[in-house]
Design a binder for these strands. Structure first.
Lengths: 226, 226
DNA sequence: ACGTCAAAAAAGATGCATCAAGTATCCTAC
DNA sequence: GTAGGATACTTGATGCATCTTTTTTGACGT
């Protein structure tokens, strides 16, 4: 269960922000979707103020954009931007994997293997949502094992931007999403930093291939109206 | 002149956010300093609303923290956190330097050399503020040359967190702040990616040494009252 | 002096009214 | 039937009142 709020105490603002982050990461928004503060306020049963706060934070994360002062939307993702995000992930998740390999305990390994088992089951059951969630859980747990909270926050933000663009695509890769995870765990067991780094890089590049191909095909509806 | 606002149109919120970001990066806040929304509203001559918006964005960047629901402060920087930020910078600025080396034009090189010349002058003149500003400009221009806007945003956020902790320390390093910049430019001229990456890593590790030593010495006043 | 506790003041959270600017709708004129 | 324009509506920005909780302060007793 990833922790998304950076504010340590609870308020409506953080609750809304967390809920919208979850929705974004789970792909429940499509590129081009428009967000309206008053509508969201009604959905959440609050006034507009906490919604505005959350929307502003999301805009600061570049997870949503203000196309004009009154037009808040889920942004598109150009091919070059996706490639940049992928390059950044390669560097940062590589660092996380290296560090994790050095410090991973047997409890950490068990947690990873549990995620893999659940992911297997989700794929067999055809549960796409759970499949992508567990895939994300795998990626987020590495910086946690490594004890790198700043890195974790950066990756979280990148995932907010990718979320609306990976929901459908991942499935087309079938088991490719999970196959590359096993070598990572094997490397962590051996405390082999170099192998762990290479394995996670493989996962990012190969496992993410369907997403890139989808963006290249231009199946994005970036400027779709509502 | 780095562009800090992610909202493309102008409003009070972004103006306040930008001003506070500048203040943070320039070290005009000290760790432990307390921020009060009403006070800032008076200083900026606005109501509390745009200030709250900006404060919330800054908190989302982890540039400021809510120690309690009514206590907004500049956070401290533990040694482990600084080391983590440094590791991330090594990876990301390494990537920026590699990419920049491949695509840098002669105009880009000239811009870099202009910054170096101005930085020399600022150091000679003993202008600390301008010195640190130009040092930052050097680091921010590399991802711009490389055409990596996402990377740029991540580094900007990291700098927001480091800002309050580097103001004094850098000076103690004397010319060390700038000496390591020359090999970077030389590598870019030769379009030598590997050398550029190594040079910028040297700068981060060696140039940042005074900061780490200061944090290790515990000269931080993280919980200082006002 | 120091710690404790209570009252007073401060401060952020939340809700809401209003404003300005942009959008949609509908009516009219040709 | 269509084009143009005026009107009504939508929507985020801003300001502000109020509420609750925290923080500060100061008096009191030890």
């Amino acid at each position: 269960m990833p922790e998304f709020t950076t504010l340590e105490y609870e308020n409506l603002n953080s609750a809304v922000y967390g809920a919208l982050c979850d929705a974004l990461i789970q792909g429940r928004f499509q590129p081009g979707d428009r967000l309206k503060i008053r509508d969201l306020a009604e959905q959440f049963g609050t006034s507009v103020t906490p919604i505005r706060d959350a929307i502003l934070r999301l805009a600061n994360d570049e997870a949503i954009i203000f196309r004009s002062p009154r037009d808040i939307r889920i942004p598109g993702l150009s091919e070059s931007r996706y490639r940049e995000i992928r390059s950044i992930r390669v560097r940062l998740e590589g660092l996380a994997a290296e560090t994790a390999a050095q410090v991973a305990t047997s409890a950490d390994i068990e947690a990873l293997e549990r995620i893999l088992r659940e992911n297997e089951q989700a794929i067999e059951a055809g549960d796409r949502l759970k499949g992508t969630q567990l895939n994300q859980a795998f990626h987020f747990i590495l910086p946690q094992i490594a004890g790198l909270p700043v890195l974790n926050g950066i990756l979280r933000r990148l995932w907010l931007q990718m979320g609306p663009h990976i929901s459908d695509a991942y499935i087309q890769g079938g088991r490719a999403m999970i196959d590359h995870h096993y070598p990572v765990v094997e490397a962590l067991k051996r405390h082999d930093s170099a192998a762990a780094s290479m394995a996670i890089v493989d996962d990012i590049l190969l496992g993410g291939k369907p997403i890139l191909e989808r963006i290249e095909r231009g199946e994005e509806r970036q400027t779709r109206r509502a």
